[in-house]
Design a protein around this nucleic acid. Structure first.
Lengths: 199, 199
DNA sequence: CTTAACTCGAACATTAATGTACGAGTTACA
DNA sequence: TGTAACTCGTACATTAATGTTCGAGTTAAG
């Protein structure tokens, strides 16, 4: 996080930000990520309040709701990218999938919700271009499993990826409805997908 | 978000509506169902326009956005109830499930979307009380399959129901993204679920 | 210490949605 | 055919969100 991937805004002198400004940007992104990935219809004012920052201050850093959304997506991408590095994805595809699900299913879920809740603020082009990077990695993993026989190949690859995300989302729903515990979720998820993917 | 605003109700004499009124109510519900189940954030004005009816006319029949949402859910329930009657659900559970998916997956999908898109307008109590009736029927079907050994019993029943709806939703997404055709969908869906449900 | 960067509340303009009120015209139906 | 029910455009009140402007105070950093 050394690099300041700043959202190019017209108002700022484009120079390096002062320490307190950077701190506030951080608080805004953190609070925004939490809010946006938890429910739809979040307002800019809510994000500012949750970040403990004035609304005007927020607008000082993110000129519009859209720019804020872009920054949130960008940060989520970065975090996901970093997290992926901690998962061992070599070895048999089915085992790698199991590890991935157990260690990162909540991150996948957060990203999916975030995406759902900013899809009205961002153009489809923008979203498609910065397509959730882990989604592509998941695709590669499944593809590898199909080639070496660990996974079935009679279903479309894209469908298998979509189904995975869909079930991750479903698991999160079950948890929030109290019909599943956070402990059980990874196991249920993994068991369901392994059965579905098996040739 | 609390309700409690007593809108000027009792505009209706509660008697039988005139033929043209009933016709408009119908147009409104039909258009509303289509809109609400296709995307979020639908406005009352949009529904009125899509129905080819004045906005004021709509308010004459449905005093508030909330009442409109209730009416839409109610109609969807009725249609679902009627459609269920046309599916043969006796016999082996796995075969019945296959028939159900092939004949009614789009209706399940519509209801799911509708539910998602009115979930901010109706109280959780109301929604829970008029719980999608076919969802319970699906639950019964799966439950029967578990008892006679057609389906696995090592996963929570509620999870199996949720997963089904989740995948139906995913299939619809795939179609709208152009990665799956409407012809392929039922087969893919059925194959995925049968694998996942098999003991 | 000095200053430029930053914060932040209050106020304002704009846009969009909801719901109400009025009144003139149209349509069903006894 | 008479009339109550119905339609519908216009206009208005209200609420909420977005984004900007102003100015006075605070803080980081050279």
């Amino acid at each position: 996080m050394a690099e300041g991937k700043t959202t190019a805004s017209a108002r700022q002198p484009a120079g390096p930000r002062r320490a307190d400004a950077q701190r506030n940007i951080d608080k805004i992104l953190t609070a925004g990520l939490k809010l946006y990935s938890s429910r739809p219809g979040v307002s800019v004012a809510e994000v500012a309040q949750a970040a403990g920052v004035g609304r005007v201050t927020l607008y000082g850093h993110f000129p519009s709701r859209t720019e804020l959304a872009k920054a949130l997506m960008t940060r989520a991408f970065e975090e996901t990218e970093a997290a992926w590095a901690s998962v061992e994805t070599d070895g048999p595809a089915d085992e790698a999938l199991d590890r991935l699900l157990r260690e990162q299913w909540y991150l996948m879920e957060r990203n999916r919700n975030l995406r759902d809740n900013v899809v009205g603020d961002l153009s489809p082009q923008w979203l498609r271009q910065r397509h959730d990077p882990i989604l592509r990695r998941v695709e590669e993993l499944i593809s590898r499993g199909r080639e070496d026989g660990a996974f079935r190949a009679d279903l479309p690859l894209s469908w298998m990826v979509t189904a995975l995300y869909s079930l991750v989302h479903a698991a999160a729903d079950e948890i929030s409805e109290g019909r599943l515990t956070a402990d059980e979720a990874p196991g249920v998820l993994s068991a369901s997908l392994q059965s579905m993917y098996r040739p």
